[in-house]
């Protein structure tokens, strides 16, 4: 080194490899002051917040948090993240309360007429829907053929009135149809599939349609018992309307040929259905959230009266 520093700075006193030494510079005073400040800060922190374990307990600190629990009791325990959460939730609830109270006190018909409430339902409803419902019913409520019904159309398995939608969300649903492959012959299944196809105007063999019609309304297959004589289904049990062009389980629209359409229907009749599980949400969501969702889902597409 050509530019040796003048020997004003102390060295640590070690010497390595004959002449290698280490300066012992004092810490800059601004840095040292900062360090002492953090020490003082920690003392203050220990006094305010829970800090040191003592035997089977710990020092809880002087800081308190005041909140109101769901029984309406006000409490002020020592500071903890759990108490702080109660307080944060209290504050959020206070902000949302005027809206939720209004939603709770307002009839569904009135909600849809009030622009302020409608926009609250749309924004808050969308958030709850995205977290809980979209993984199944998809983000726009359009559903998925073969799995989850479309909520954005005006076709309802269980009914599209506000009351029915609310009941569906709170209690859940599980559509059940027995498998017919063991009870009916292959010929009978074919005939029924042709008949069901004809109900919604798909191409079908006329002779088979007649035979299927008899089976549908006879007691051997007893389809009419659940799907009604008209084939339009019964909303109390969520049996599908077979006379419209909307399919949930038999993916008829995706098939190109008339044979494939009939085969898709036949497959459902043969194997039955028990996969339509709509979970119950009353344990997971609050009643006011369910009411909000009901209004949101009803408005998604064609809700019914």
């Amino acid at each position: 080194m050509s530019q040796q520093k003048p020997q004003t700075v102390q060295t640590t006193g070690h010497v390595w490899d004959e002449d290698l030494q280490e300066y012992n510079n004092p810490l800059p005073s601004w840095w040292l002051m900062g360090f002492y400040a953090t020490v003082v800060m920690s003392l203050i922190y220990w006094m305010i917040y829970p800090a040191w374990p003592v035997g089977k307990h710990f020092t809880t600190g002087f800081g308190t948090v005041t909140y109101v629990n769901d029984k309406g009791v006000e409490k002020s325990p020592h500071w903890s993240t759990r108490a702080q959460l109660m307080k944060d939730m209290n504050e959020a609830e206070k902000l949302q309360k005027p809206y939720f109270d209004k939603v709770a006190a307002t009839s569904f018909e009135q909600i849809s007429k009030d622009p302020e409430l409608t926009s609250f339902v749309n924004s808050a409803g969308k958030a709850i829907f995205s977290d809980n419902c979209a993984p199944c019913h998809q983000s726009g409520g359009q559903g998925k053929v073969g799995y989850f019904p479309n909520l954005a159309d005006d076709d309802w398995l269980y009914g599209g009135s506000h009351d029915k939608i609310q009941e569906t969300i709170a209690k859940g649903r599980n559509g059940y149809m027995p498998a017919f492959k063991e009870v009916l012959s292959s010929e009978q299944l074919d005939n029924l599939a042709h008949y069901v196809a004809s109900l919604s105007g798909e191409k079908a063999d006329a002779a088979r349609v007649r035979a299927g019609d008899a089976l549908f309304h006879g007691d051997a297959a007893a389809c009419y018992y659940c799907h009604d004589n008209s084939g339009k289904g019964r909303q109390v049990i969520g049996s599908a309307n077979l006379t419209d062009k909307i399919w949930l389980w038999a993916d008829v629209p995706a098939q190109d040929s008339a044979e494939d359409k009939v085969a898709a229907i036949r497959q459902v009749i043969a194997n039955g259905l028990n996969r339509g599980v709509m979970p119950a949400w009353e344990t997971r969501l609050k009643p006011e959230q369910i009411k909000l969702l009901t209004a949101y889902v009803h408005a998604l597409g064609g809700g019914a009266k």
């Binding site: 809980n132 979209a134 993984p135 199944c136 998809q138 799995y147 599980v277 709509m278 979970p279």
Partner: peptide
């Protein structure tokens, strides 16, 4: 737990994009 149906979990594990694009 119990948020989704068994059927959803099965399809989702086989191919998550089929349930959540």
């Amino acid at each position: 737990g119990m948020k989704y149906s068994n059927d959803w979990h099965v399809q989702h594990l086989i191919d998550p994009k089929s349930m959540v694009p």
